[in-house]
Amino acid sequence: MTACLPASAPEPVFLHPWHAQVFALTVSLNEAGRFSWPTWVAQFSQVLARHGLDKDLDGGDDYFTAWLETLEMILAKDGAAPAPDVERLRGDWERAYLETPHGDVVRLAASQNT
């Protein structure tokens, strides 16, 4: 796993920024009382089990993919983030990235920002 790295090289806590973001989102919502941690664990365990049916999960990207699916499911169900809204904003962000010159800070366009 880390055999090729010097012993002092720390393993990154999160492999990708979005892993950290979706983790923090979930912890923040839990702390704000949106859902209890046992509720989260029960739902997340089910998603992980389903994803692990036809392949072995390696605990990296696939783990946070299941994490994100769980969060989307919970927020769609309780109405905080309905699926159509997520699809729309996802498209808005994609456009924002494609239309922002490299090096500039990517923001949603003013027309999308309402």
Binding site: L25, L68, E72, V86, V106
Partner: peptide
């Protein structure tokens, strides 16, 4: 253009935007 993040990253940003606009999360807390 700016490097397009992977699909799940876009979805996370969408969630974050929606929840921030509704006042359900504070980006500084994240």
């Amino acid at each position: 253009h700016a490097l397009l993040p992977p699909e799940p990253a876009l979805r996370v940003k969408a969630l974050e935007t929606i929840l921030t606009r509704k006042g359900l999360i504070d980006p500084r807390t994240l």
